[in-house]
């Protein structure tokens, strides 16, 4: 990543235009050409610096539901359980964490009722207790990583 890449990542974490030529509009603000911006975004995505470039959807606003859940997985079963959990398309993220609750995942479903079903399926498949921790309240979502 060079300084231009950093400027792109810092400036474009939101606010990308909805217009006929949005890359051209965004590139102008960054002092780049449209072609330069598109090529750099392609490379940042291909290199994995960006997970993707585009709209970030809010599952709950889509009428669905999201929850954070955790498992306490015995070490020797960790990979097998990760595969079972990840096989559900409703698992949006899954992280290994260093705690007795060592696997933490986000379940995003199109309907609130579906969350319960996914949890029951995972419990049946793994014979483990899923600790469900749906948000009660949200105080801030504004990640703007400075790089």
């Amino acid at each position: 990543m060079d300084t231009v890449d950093r400027r792109i990542v810092n400036a474009l974490q939101g606010g990308f235009p909805i217009s006929e030529c949005p890359y051209e509009d965004a590139a102008r603000d960054l002092g780049l050409t449209q072609g330069e911006l598109i090529e750099r975004l392609k490379r940042l995505c291909a290199d994995g610096v960006l997970s993707r470039f585009g709209p970030l959807y809010d599952a709950e606003q889509l009428g669905g539901a999201v929850t954070l859940a955790a498992l306490s997985v015995p070490g020797e079963r960790f990979e097998a359980v990760a595969d079972l959990v990840n096989a559900h398309p409703e698992i949006a993220h899954n992280y290994a964490r260093d705690h007795a609750l060592n696997m933490w995942f986000v379940i995003a479903t199109e309907t609130p009722e579906r969350i319960r079903q996914v949890i029951e399926d995972i419990e049946a498949e793994t014979s483990l207790t899923v600790y469900n921790m749906p948000k009660i309240n949200e105080f801030y979502i504004g990640l703007n990583l400075a790089v």
Partner: peptide
């Protein structure tokens, strides 16, 4: 898409960084 953005169904449009690859 403008309407989805206005209603908050789209939170934002832009770069979705991978924290790890950014050194975080």
């Amino acid at each position: 898409m403008r309407r989805l953005l206005a209603k908050g169904i789209i939170r934002r449009i832009g770069a979705v960084p991978n924290h790890y690859r950014l050194g975080y």
